[in-house]
């Protein structure tokens, strides 16, 4: 048995070394040849989760690109922003969604939960060593699986020369849903509540985004996309404002939560639909141009 254990251990060691070398090579290669170049006229980007993804119709916003993606945490936003800033020196303004649900505990799960494996796979080659370490520490099994899957996917992309990532990590999404009257009727008006747990990890990455933007001489703005007055996330208004005041006192917040929209301009209580998107984007475009 000793002979078997010795040979098997040696083989496993070789296998792991080869696997790691190969995945690291694929990740490094992907990182070095990925294209994040936006058109040179784009000076402003909007990043965040599904709220901005459905709200900012960048065909109506002058010189802007919406790079938001559903369920993106600030870790994801930070990772993609690093690459966009690196390859787009013309960027001047970064609008980052700071919504009531950006601080809730769920955002921790959006970073390292098992369900976020597809996101881990997608972002894997673009993460920095500290993020690799964090994800490995928080969810080692999912991280390792995602690492192998990611290497598989990106190896194919390298071979097929499909590494134009400009629109792969977020874009405006036309929301065709419509908020139902029955949902509005049965939903009570949110009452103020205190959050039991706050996602300090997500807040930490928002800070990193701000540092990154400033380091690259970009103006950074927090922005809150409109939501329906009955959206449950509004319950945590007190904590929302407290966190803003405590951690980001000098960053301007463009608060559009109460922007006037009709019920039919919402897809659900927290997302605009395409009609709301048009109305809001047109308004914002005017406002930003002033």
């Amino acid at each position: 048995m000793k002979r078997f254990i010795y040979k098997f251990s040696l083989f496993c060691l070789l296998l792991n070394t080869s696997l790691l070398t190969l995945t690291f090579y694929i990740e490094a290669k992907t990182k070095s040849i990925s294209n994040f170049k936006l058109t040179p006229t784009i000076h402003s980007v909007f990043i965040g989760h599904s709220h901005p993804q459905y709200a900012y119709n960048d065909s109506l916003l002058q010189n802007s690109a919406n790079l938001s993606y559903s369920m993106d945490s600030y870790l994801h936003s930070y990772t993609k922003l690093t690459h966009f800033i690196q390859q787009n020196k013309q960027l001047k303004n970064i609008f980052i969604e700071y919504s009531n649900n950006s601080i809730i505990e769920l955002m921790d799960k959006a970073i390292y939960n098992n369900n976020t494996k597809p996101k881990m796979v997608k972002y894997m080659p673009y993460l920095n060593s500290s993020e690799h370490f964090l994800l490995f520490k928080k969810n080692p099994l999912t991280y390792l699986i995602a690492k192998i899957e990611s290497a598989n996917i990106y190896a194919k992309k390298i071979l097929e020369n499909r590494l134009n990532m400009t629109r792969e990590f977020g874009r405006f999404e036309k929301n065709s849903k419509q908020l139902k009257n029955s949902t509005i009727n049965k939903t009570p008006i949110p009452k103020p509540k205190t959050l039991k747990k706050i996602s300090y990890l997500n807040i930490f990455y928002l800070k990193k985004i701000i540092v990154l933007a400033k380091k690259n001489n970009c103006n950074i703005f927090l922005i809150r996309t409109p939501t329906h007055p009955k959206w449950a996330g509004r319950e945590f208004e007190f904590d929302y404002k407290r966190i803003k005041k405590t951690y980001f006192p000098n960053i301007k917040l463009i608060d559009m939560i109460n922007f006037k929209l009709k019920n039919e301009e919402f897809g659900d209580l927290q997302h605009l639909n395409y009609k709301g998107g048009i109305k809001y984007s047109l308004y914002l475009n005017k406002m930003l141009n002033k």
Binding site: F11, L14, L15, S18, L19, L22, I148, E149, A151, N152, I153, A155
Partner: peptide, 13 residues
């Protein structure tokens, strides 16, 4: 063996 295992891992997704 190593190449086969690596191929398996890459196809096992």
């Amino acid at each position: 063996y190593l190449i086969l295992i690596l191929l398996i891992l890459f196809y096992s997704t």
